[in-house]
Design a protein around this nucleic acid. Structure first.
Length: 473
RNA sequence: GGUCCCAUCGUCUAGGGGUUAGGACGCUGGCCUCUCACGCCGGUAACAUGGGUUCAAAUCCCAUUGGGAUCACCA
């Protein structure tokens, strides 16, 4: 433990178990805890729950760190690893035994199974019957340690999101806190960690509701104040079933690879289960400022990728082009180009801001600015390189050639001249030019594009297009 | 099955005794327009059901139904 715990400081934590990548549900849990800590000026702890030796992997640990870093969810303390804290757990377990709140149990798994079968057959609940509870057994090789659960009464969670939840203690049995190999079980480790780390607000998925009374019993046995609990509703797939692979993308890294902005991801995730009136769009700072526990919803939500994409488009639109250069870079590289002229790149991004829902789309849309046009889109050729196109391009080249500036007003003047000479509208001129410059019939605005390309490149492409058309005739 | 949780448009949600039940995504009609977008204006679509309480219920209570979670020497 570092530092002293001040009771008025909120301390939250995110405790993933490293048995896979970070999925969106986990990311949302992390986000809520992080936001609450940031909102209150509290502390956010990262703890890796790696006590499952079989399923925990270093790759998963790395993947979780990487995803959190990408989301820019930073932690003030940790990462702690439970496997490095076994001495501490042992100490607490011993203490519970000494206090008479836990005991050694030598029942074999077979005996336990028989117990459960018998209980079931009699219509009762499959649970441990407490036969070692009062035997006062000493530690031995294959003994486990069980917590003495109160046999009657109730355990009540005052849940900040769900309200009061009451459990009958008669439903709970003396659960194992130390395995026969001496390792601590999940509920023990969590309680000890939360206690020793000073965690006073626990926000977690509501799949943990049934664990909560078990952990509360440890606090109560030790006479320690309970943290505030809040159980977040689950994130579901489109069929309202728990999110899984068949629902498509669900890991945070997949969304990164789709060209989602971290801030958009956060914005989407937080709105899935939290609201602030009618507001849909939030910057990261707004989220920190406005987040609260009060507005967390109680019902599970379906993950809607469409809405994420729409929100991502809004975040892109609201971005400063300069800030997009870095995140966009890998997507451009993936397409095989790597612009070095940052001013031009910034301008190019500016033209694509309102027409990109993802960075993938943006990298695709920006490609023609920085790479030669290998071939013209076939449909665009058929539609826009017909009859007067060559003539139009020829006249425009002549009008453009003497220009010193490619400012919008000058370009407009040049276009106007061609339109007047030929007695045609802007559209007639613009369409062949668009294909000549971008290779496609979908592009940013004419003058925007020419401004980014610059005179030399633009003229070169117009000439090449004219030659292409003339050769085809 | 036991226990626990949940229930407003297809989806995310606002509203929480008296509202034309609001917004967003999606879908859709139109406007703008050099293409595609963006933007703007409009449309579509919801209080799960049944009982109470009340002058009045989407809102409070109960039940039903439906969905989800969990019942390990996993976390």
């Amino acid at each position: 433990m570092k530092g002293k715990i001040t009771m008025d400081q909120i301390i939250t934590r995110f405790p993933p178990s490293p048995t896979g990548y970070l999925h969106v549900g986990g990311a949302r849990t992390a986000l809520f805890n992080w936001l609450y800590a940031r909102n209150t000026g509290g502390k956010f702890i990262l703890r890796i729950e790696d006590t499952d030796a079989v399923r925990s992997t270093q790759e998963s640990v790395d993947a979780i760190f990487e995803s959190l870093k990408w989301l820019e969810i930073d932690w003030d303390d940790g990462p702690y690893f439970q496997t490095k804290r076994y001495d501490l757990y042992k100490e607490y377990i011993q203490n519970l035994v000494d206090l008479g709140h836990a005991y050694y149990c030598t029942c074999t798994p077979e005996e336990i199974d028989a117990m459960r079968e018998k209980a079931k057959a009699e219509g009762g609940k499959p649970r441990y019957d407490g036969r070692c509870r009062d035997k006062n057994l000493p530690p031995s090789d294959h003994a486990v340690v069980r917590l003495k659960a109160p046999p009657s009464g109730t355990t009540v969670i005052e849940d900040v999101v769900k309200g009061t939840i009451v459990f009958q203690n008669s439903e709970l049995d003396d659960y194992i806190i130390q395995r026969s190999d001496g390792s601590p079980t999940y509920n023990l480790a969590v309680a000890v960690d939360d206690i020793t780390m000073g965690v006073n607000v626990v926000l977690r998925g509501d799949d943990h509701v049934n664990n909560t009374p078990k952990q509360m019993m440890i606090y109560q046995a030790l006479g320690i104040d309970l943290p505030v609990y809040g159980h977040l509703p689950m994130v579901l797939g489109s069929d309202k079933a728990r999110l899984s692979k068949r629902h498509g993308a669900m890991s945070v890294s997949e969304f990164r690879d789709m060209g989602i902005l971290p801030d958009a991801m956060l914005n989407y995730l937080v709105r899935l289960g939290w609201s602030f009136g009618d507001q849909e769009f939030f910057t990261r700072n707004e989220l920190i400022e406005k987040f609260n526990l009060k507005n967390i919803g109680r019902s599970a939500g379906v993950f809607d990728q469409n809405k994420l994409l729409a929100l991502n488009g809004e975040h892109i639109k609201a971005s400063n082009p300069r800030d997009l250069i870095k995140p966009l870079r890998p997507f451009m590289n993936q397409r095989g180009y790597d612009p070095q002229d940052l001013d031009t790149l910034e301008k190019a991004i500016g033209t694509l801001l309102p027409r990109s829902k993802t960075l993938v789309e943006m990298a695709e849309g920006a490609e023609f600015y920085f790479t030669d046009i290998a071939s013209y889109d076939e449909k665009a050729v058929q539609k826009c390189f017909q009859s007067p196109a060559s003539d139009i391009l020829g006249r425009l080249i002549q009008a453009l050639e003497p220009l010193e500036s490619f400012a919008e007003a000058d370009l407009e003047h040049a276009f106007k001249g061609v339109m007047d000479d030929m007695g045609i509208g802007f559209g007639k001129v613009a369409n062949p030019v668009r294909v000549a410059l971008s290779g496609k019939n979908v592009s940013p605005g004419m003058f925007e594009m020419m401004g980014v390309l610059g005179k030399a490149l633009a003229l070169d492409r117009l000439k090449r297009a004219k030659a292409f058309i003339d050769a085809g005739i």
